[in-house]
């Protein structure tokens, strides 16, 4: 009951913030809207009984990634854009139409399929424990986990290399 109300409230906020990302003429406000949608998503994860993922969402997305976005945005000091959308009217209309068709298709499919709606016996009732997640992470997904570590290392090296280029694109 209360979960339903919370879901609709959060869904409304989430769509509002996402539209803010799309529509706002100032990139800074777009990013602040994205921060809002990240926080709302975190609340939604809490609603879906994965509090650990909710907290990680806050730490990683809202607390680190988006802070970087906002910080870069402030360093560039970008003003309101006069023309925020690229392309002409017709191509944009086609793009919007395609995205709308995509959402409609998935949405219709989701509503047609009635097998896995709530009330079925499989719905998880207790909070997902960190222990069971860790066991999956370090047993079944161990190789992926290690590969991810290597990717992160490469990314760190790459980011440092990119920001330290002397000459080349840097010389202006």
């Amino acid at each position: 009951m209360i979960t339903g109300y919370l879901f609709y409230m959060l869904a409304f906020l989430l769509i509002l913030f996402s539209l803010g990302v799309l529509m706002h003429s100032s990139p800074l406000f777009s990013s602040l809207n994205l921060v809002g949608s990240m926080i709302v998503l975190s609340a939604m994860y809490y609603l879906l009984q994965v509090p650990f993922i909710a907290a990680v969402q806050l730490i990683v997305y809202a607390g680190a990634v988006m802070v970087l976005f906002v910080m870069v945005m402030m360093m560039f000091d970008l003003k309101h854009e006069i023309k925020i959308f690229s392309g002409g009217f017709i191509s944009n209309a086609i793009k919007c139409g395609l995205a709308g068709f995509f959402a409609f298709t998935i949405g219709a499919t989701a509503f047609m399929s009635t097998e896995m709606i709530s009330g079925s016996a499989k719905v998880k009732t207790e909070v997902l424990s960190v222990k069971s997640m860790a066991q999956l992470l370090f047993k079944d997904y161990l190789i992926e986990f290690e590969v991810l570590g290597v990717i992160l290392l490469l990314v760190a090296v790459g980011a440092v290399a990119l920001s330290r280029i002397k000459g080349g694109t840097h010389a202006s």
């Binding site: 509090p51 907290a55 990680v56 969402q57 806050l58 730490i59 809202a62």
Partner: peptide, 8 residues
């Protein structure tokens, strides 16, 4: 974890 998330 919650506290680290919120305070970030």
């Amino acid at each position: 974890v919650f506290i680290l998330g919120v305070s970030s």
